[in-house]
Each structure stands twice: as C-alpha cells, then as structure tokens.
Design a protein around this nucleic acid. Sequence first.
DNA 1: ACCCCCGCCTGGCGGC
DNA 2: TGCCGCCAGGCGGGGG
Length: 312
Amino acid sequence: MPELPEVEVVRRGLSRWVAGRTVAFAEVLHPRAIRRHVPGAAEFAGRLAGRTLVSAERRGKYLWLPLAESLNGSEGPAGGIPADAREAPPAGEEHGAAEALLAHLGMSGQLLVVEPGSTLEKHLRVRLGFDDGGPELRFVDQRTFGHLLVSRLLPLERPVPEPIAHIAADPLEEAFDDEAFAARLGVRQTEVKRALLDQSLISGVGNIYADEALWRARLHGGTPTRALSRRKIDELLAAVREVMAEALGQGGTSFDSLYVNVNGESGYFDRSLNVYGREGEPCGRCGAPVLREAFMNRSSYSCPRCQPRSAT
DNA sequence: ACCCCCGCCTGGCGGC
DNA sequence: TGCCGCCAGGCGGGGG
C-alpha cells in the first residue's frame, strides 16, 4: 500500500531507469487504468509515442514524468544503456515540457522496469516500450485503484499536472508551510486524523502513517483540530516527517508482495510500525495493549494510555 | 464554502 | 472442500 515514502522510492527508481528515455510505444491492456484520461486509450498511446520522459517528479502520492519532444532528435543505439548515470533536468522548462504522464498507484499499483521479452504480469495494465530497446516500464495493478493519464502541466512556480492542482504540498516539500497548516487547523471543524488524511491540507499521509504519527505525537486521532496548540501541531508535523523519513530510509512499507519498488524489491518498514495493525500487542512505550477502533469503514490503531482522547 | 462519507474494485482469507 | 461475504486502501464527488 504505497504512501509517500513508497512513492518516493518509486520516483527514485523512475529517475534512475526511465528519465531521459524516449517512448517508442504505449500499450493499454486494461481501459480502467487510464479511466481519467478522458480522450481514451488510443489517444493516450498516441500522445506518448515519440515523447521523451524528461524527469520523475512527486507530490504526495502522485508521480509525474514531464514530456518533451524527443531529446536526441532520433533513435538511440539499440540495446541501450539505462539512464542511470544522469539525473535528468527538473520538471519542464529546460525542454519546454508542457505536458506530463501522471500516475497514482492507488493501493496496489506498481511501476516495474523489466526486460522487454519477459513474461507479462497477471495484472499488467499499461506497458511502455522505449526506442533504445532497453527495459520497458510496466504499470501493474491488481485492484485497479491506480491510474495513469497524460495532462497539461500548469505553468506555476513549480509546474504541476492540472488534475492535481488542488493537492496540497506534502510535508517533505520545501514549499510546505507549517504556519499556514497550523492556521487552517485552527479554524477547521474536524478531527486531527481526518485533517491528516485530507489531501487538500497536507498530502501524502495515508492511514498507516497517520496512525504512526499520532502515536509518536501522543495524540488521539479524534481530537478536534481546534483544541491543538501550535506546539502540539509542530510536534505532530515533526512526527509525520520522522516516520516518513524512517520509512524512506528502509525502502518503504510492505505488508505483502503487492507493493514493490520500481525494480520489484519489497520494502520492509512494516517491522518498524508501532501501532498500525498491532491490535492487542503491547505499546512499545507503556505496554498497554494497542486499541483498534472503527474509522470510516476501516480501522484506526492507537495506544489507549499514551493517546488519551483529551490530550492537546 | 465547508465537512462528511459513499462507492469504486479485486483478491485473500475467515467462517460456515 | 467450496463458497460467501467481509476487508483493505485513496480520493472524487455528491449530499447535507
């Protein structure tokens, strides 16, 4: 279940293995995977053919690859070498990219870099081949919550694809404004866990890292945001960043083989989770059994002693 | 405008 | 053993 750290691991893989390469063909094997690309599968494939994937960008859980007209002018050498030596230029400008290939992995999406001849994955949805004859990029997604599309890149200070203009900066971006976030929490009529999951306030935080950050900050998710002091909000943001940085250091969280990084290796941060999925197990801080509560047709996990409902 | 919550989709698995 | 139904997840959009 990819959240921000896992998506960042994938971005790095794309940056290393795919950036700078030119698409020879795109093949859509399941129309649902491109359902948000309104003009449809044929248009999607046509839009990508011949374009160079300039770089790999991320905001929250979204990934995008700015598109340029072919950089090399013509086809590269056959059996080409992966673009691992060069970090491609940043989004847009240098090559005038005004469009991007946008991806959201949903809960089971994978972007795999594999040899062209290799066996097609059972849940393969979209396939991109390159003009250098090197490894393909494959979008594999069992539960089809993820999707790909090509869209316009908005000419902002940091260009972002049009469909995600409403997604807030994530807490690992320099552009994330702690003070503005705190101010918005101060006037919201909602609970802190709902706020953490609201991608228009802060992006990239999913159910797992919300629970882990709340545990670290000793906050119950049901606490009204207006009850939080500025200091407590700072603690919470620090906790979010901490848990994400640790996960990133370990290559992302993985509970099963559904999540793998761009080369097919699983992360293992799940061994480090303190409360998520640990109902009944002792809290690592105080020993009280971890509590599981229903939340939005799923679950929240917390320590009943370290995270009392009234804490501010 | 703000906030809440349903529905989307699939496969693994628990229970009968 | 087989089948049914529940559960997981992010997020768009509709309803209140």
